[in-house]
Amino acid sequence: MTKLIHRARLYSSEEAFLDAALPFLRQGLEAGEAVLAVVPAASAETLHRALGAAAGKVEFRDAAHWYSQPTRTIAAYSSFIDDHPGVHLRAIAEPGWEHGTAAEVAEWTRYESMVNQAFADVDGAVLCLYDERTTAAEILDGALRSHPELLGESGPRANDAYLDPRAVYAEMDRQPLPPVPPDAREMPVDGIDLCALRAFVGDHAEDHGISSARLHDLLVATTEVATNAIRHGLPPVTCRTWADEGDLVVDVTDGGHWQPQGLPGFLPPDPLVRTGFGLWGVRMLCPLVQLRTGPNGTDIRLRVRTH
């Protein structure tokens, strides 16, 4: 039985935003719960004004940072949960995503869906707020499929459009990755010694003016994915890299059929066993990680912004 309440409110005026957020927050404060507000800076100001002195008891976090990439978001919520043991938790969350590529929208929808599974046993309530005026239709559509409850003018109700998280993941993973462009650079990876692979990715990345810190993260992520392909996949292992609409893409394929179960690499690993640390680390370092397994093998695609 799921304990977590995960509810969405699609609003289209500041008044509607406050009508949804204020009672929700006040109820939590009155009940002595741990109350979190992850919202963009403008909404934080609106809430501060409306709550007055009570705002001091709400833990505010900037959505721009908190929602930078799904795995970091899950890690941030996990720490908040760990920091408040035995207390009922309450959060309002306004991710502030307005637009994204198809792949980004899919991964954020996957994220909202995972919340239901990953935090099912958390004694708490999350109210997610989406501004209908500024948010792209496909993001709103994702929100409708991933929240078991909706908050409307007349209060909360069960959401008929809600899909079981596994159905959402399956739908995401059915979408084939865009084909590798013909001008992609390619390198066979035939041993565990990956210095040459890092030089190959590094040279290409530098041609696209990537910052040193991002390049370092990308090299750590690429090395991890290639190491896994060599150790656990099947040959041939191939790395390809190309630029795509301001992103640098690194794609590692192997001949194996890796079909990880559960939420591979999305949840922080248990420090005592550290199983799954690698893929989780890759997802922490890389804003977009796509994993597909088909008849031709396993394909892991990493994307980073070049600017």
Partner: peptide, 17 residues
């Protein structure tokens, strides 16, 4: 290095107390 520090801090939450 600053790059390595960033990696350690980023994946450090559950891993490196």
């Amino acid at each position: 290095s600053p790059d390595l520090t960033e990696v350690v801090q980023l994946v450090g939450g559950p891993m490196f107390p």
